[in-house]
Amino acid sequence: MRLIVHNMLSCNIRGVVNKFPLRIEPEKVIVKEVDFNPDFLKHMIAKIDWKALVDGARSMGYPELPDHPPTTLESDESFLRKFHHSLLELNLEEGSLVCPETGRKFSVNKGIPNMLLHEDEV
């Protein structure tokens, strides 16, 4: 699971208010190379919850991201590289995601988060 997905995923249990972001408990993190595409990054940055991304990247052992994104993206190649790396190349292979309110754990196996809910959580 990449951080771009983590940035969109929220806890889906019925009645939970504080459901984003899910806390990452990594066991195994791998890096898969992805083609660098500045257009896509510029398109996505408006949709990204920055704090969740920074925290997510830190918990996966990548503390390079600044606390706030720079206002001008075009000139800042090194920033875009870091953004690209954290958003698309860091993969959570094994571990779990924890709901911030209920503490419910969603396990991640082979990079696939198991988001299935039990009957009483729907």
Binding site: I4, N7, F20, V122
Partner: peptide
């Protein structure tokens, strides 16, 4: 792509306006 194990009938737990 990224894969998720989930049931679409339980609703997609995704943030609003991102897709």
């Amino acid at each position: 792509g990224d894969l998720l194990l989930g049931d679409m009938g339980q609703g997609l737990g995704l943030r609003s306006g991102v897709i």
